[in-house]
């Protein structure tokens, strides 16, 4: 037999004897590898050629939130006021309460990982053909001190806003799985097979497309489902402005058309977490960031500290508290 490696089986101390036809094995493994590579190639070509359904970006909660907000920014033609910002904006600004108070607004709050300049991109999309639009930038002190934003999250937003070409069509060796099988299965299954949300979002919303439809129906609001426990939280309340913020704020402003009015709103922190120095730090934040984004009238009357019982997490208010907070905001706006 060709290439057969037949060793003596008579020696008492021999460990194992390989009675292997190398050609047969190599042929089989090579064929598996070829088909495997072929399958990846077909998937990549299918993703590129456009024969596959369009990507829904509903694979995970972050993508779902970001892409839903991009759609909201694009489709909210009748609205004049938009709230953009981190997740404290997403869960603290209750749009149905605003509507009850006669304020027609949309909540475009997303996630702090995006960075302030990315919030500007959403605001820019919202402001298209709206010279009299008003933008509220809602930031939590936790977001302001964050050292860096995530380029992955920004890419999701850019794709959702159609500002970047679909990354699945660009060949990158380092991202081979994403551009082939991940995108292929996402295009194939996301449209009809529900994707469960992990963690606490799963209990409340179930699946990614439920989250999307609920965000849509509430004008961009998402409920916080946890409950804040001060004894479990060990984070620092020394809030400072990270270096990146000034640059991001300048970019944020540059994305908006002239004439669009911008306001800054600093989200509240829990009572037990607040220290004496916070008041000064938050005033500084309002003044500095307000200057960088050319905020017209910093919202001095809104509370910066609320009781622990109002919070789901250190940055997020519980749904009822979000309603009360929004009610207070409506009062401030009407003044």
């Amino acid at each position: 037999m060709p290439h057969q490696q037949h060793e003596s089986a008579t020696h008492r101390k021999v460990g194992q004897v390989y009675l292997v036809n190398s050609i047969v094995l190599l042929k089989q493994f090579a064929a598996i590898l070829l088909i495997f590579i072929g399958a990846f190639l077909i998937m990549w070509i299918s993703n590129r050629s456009g024969v596959m359904p369009k990507k829904t970006q509903l694979g995970d909660p972050d993508s779902t939130i970001i892409s839903t907000k991009a759609r909201l920014a694009t489709t909210s033609n009748q609205k004049r006021i938009a709230f953009v910002g981190d997740s404290s904006c997403l869960v603290n600004i209750h749009i149905p309460t605003m509507n009850d108070n006669g304020i027609d607004a949309v909540n475009l709050g997303t996630l702090s990982y995006l960075g302030i300049d990315s919030f500007g991109l959403l605001a820019q999309r919202f402001c298209q053909n709206k010279p009299d639009a008003e933008i509220f930038l809602v930031l939590h002190p936790e977001c302001v001190r964050m050292v860096a934003s995530s380029s992955d999250h920004r890419n999701i937003l850019l794709e959702a806003l159609d500002r970047a070409t679909d990354s699945s069509t660009q060949f990158q060796l380092s991202n081979l799985r994403k551009i082939t099988v991940d995108d292929f299965s996402s295009r194939l299954f996301d449209g009809w097979l529900p994707t469960p949300l992990k963690g606490r979002l799963g209990y409340r919303y179930g699946f990614t497309h439920n989250l999307m439809s609920e965000i849509f129906s509430t004008g961009g609001f998402m409920e916080e489902t946890s409950r804040f426990d001060a004894s479990d939280f060990h984070g620092s309340s020394d809030y400072r402005i990270a270096r990146r913020v000034q640059n991001e704020c300048t970019l944020f402003r540059s994305y908006l058309p002239n004439g669009v009015r911008v306001y800054l709103l600093v989200s509240p922190i829990p009572q037990s977490h607040a220290t004496r120095g916070n008041e000064k730090q938050i005033l500084e934040m309002r003044s500095e960031i307000g200057k960088w984004i050319q905020s017209e009238n910093p919202s001095k009357n809104m509370p910066t500290v609320l009781p622990d019982s109002s919070f789901g997490t250190v940055t997020h208010l519980l749904p009822n508290s979000a309603r009360e907070y929004t009610q207070q905001l409506c009062l401030m706006l009407s003044q």
Partner: peptide
């Protein structure tokens, strides 16, 4: 014992 490993076993 010593082990005998053939194609079939590996496959």
């Amino acid at each position: 014992q010593q082990r005998f490993i053939n194609d079939s076993m590996i496959l």
